[in-house]
Design a protein around this nucleic acid. Structure first.
Lengths: 178, 178
DNA sequence: CTGCGGCTGTAGCAATCGCTACGTCCGGCC
DNA sequence: GGCCGGACGTAGCGATTGCTACAGCCGCAG
């Protein structure tokens, strides 16, 4: 046992759950290590730096989120309005609250261009745009632009829900899109 | 000179500029005080805590931003699409970059409900919704809902621009809204 | 048995954080 | 002159940060 790669995977998995629950902004190695039953010393033994660990955690969480997205949104191609409404319904689920909060934390940390956050945020959103493109109906011409717009709307929903203005959203965007 | 309220105003003004330039997430009293030509000791003499200072700074910046918004967006009532496009054009201006980044930082810090950030973020967005409502044309019936949707779109634009995906936005949202 | 190299616990580093105790200076009041 | 209270500088507290130096443990090769 004790393959190094396996240890790294275990740490990333545990750290991901911890980050979703406790937040990214104030993440620090010692409390994280305590929750994982180890020490900061060991985290930095398996990862060269906190940033490297964070980068891997964010990559794992991005994959997780993408899987949730794929599993919760109808597989057929739909118009922009339907896609946005489906994402809205997904974000309204209580168990998605902390993931949504984490997304916002990531965007906030990335806002000044600081890595590893900026890289992770950019690839997360680019992923979403790619994914939206595969789910949109209508003419292929301009589909990418519509995907970008859809993701923008979804991000807006994320923001409003996160600050507690979610109830005002009820159908507001659906009626606006065509 | 020396009126206490006047000193507080001076500090808030200086701190606001500093926060816009340097960011909110890693704001700390000592470097801020150094920039203002004073000491952390004095900041905490005029404000009971860092949180109180931050709350006042965010309030001031919210007012500033609202003034910029009022000055840069056509005063007449317009449809949602036009309003969103105008906000997009405003956010595209280089001198708005750090303000936009600051908004995202604020949202990220507010995401877990921690004050003073959460309160400031909520009131900022509520302000924007109110403002959008005064600028929207069309039937008063449902105008508020359209204002919420418009703000959601604008927040989405903010997010995409902040992570460097702004160029993909070119007209993507305008074509989507009716 | 000896030695060696990977794993890990202990302890500590220097830096930074918000905040505070303490002393001092200084202008106005009696 | 004596005094008092607001303004301010100096210095430091206790906690926390990411990271590291050091030593011991343990299994395996010689």
């Amino acid at each position: 046992m004790g393959d190094r790669e396996e240890q790294r995977r275990l740490i990333v998995a545990g750290a991901s759950a911890y980050v979703v629950a406790e937040g990214l902004t104030k993440l620090s190695l010692r409390p994280l290590a305590a929750r994982l039953g180890t020490s900061d010393r060991m985290l930095l033994y398996y990862f060269d730096s906190k940033d490297e660990l964070v980068a891997e955690v964010l990559q794992a969480l991005s994959a997780d989120l993408r899987a949730v997205l794929a599993a919760s949104i109808p597989a057929r191609r739909v118009p922009v309005r339907t896609l946005v409404e489906a994402a809205d319904a997904l974000l309204a689920r209580p168990e998605m609250r902390s993931s949504a909060a984490l997304c916002l934390e990531l965007l906030g940390l990335a806002a000044r261009g600081a890595d590893p956050y900026a890289t992770a945020a950019r690839s997360l959103l680019a992923d979403w745009i790619d994914w939206a493109e595969t789910r949109l109906s209508g003419p292929p011409r301009g589909r990418r632009a519509r995907a970008v717009g859809a993701v923008a709307c979804i991000e807006g929903i994320l923001v409003l829900r996160a600050v507690g203005l979610g109830e005002r959203l009820r159908g507001a965007l659906g009626g606006l899109l065509r």
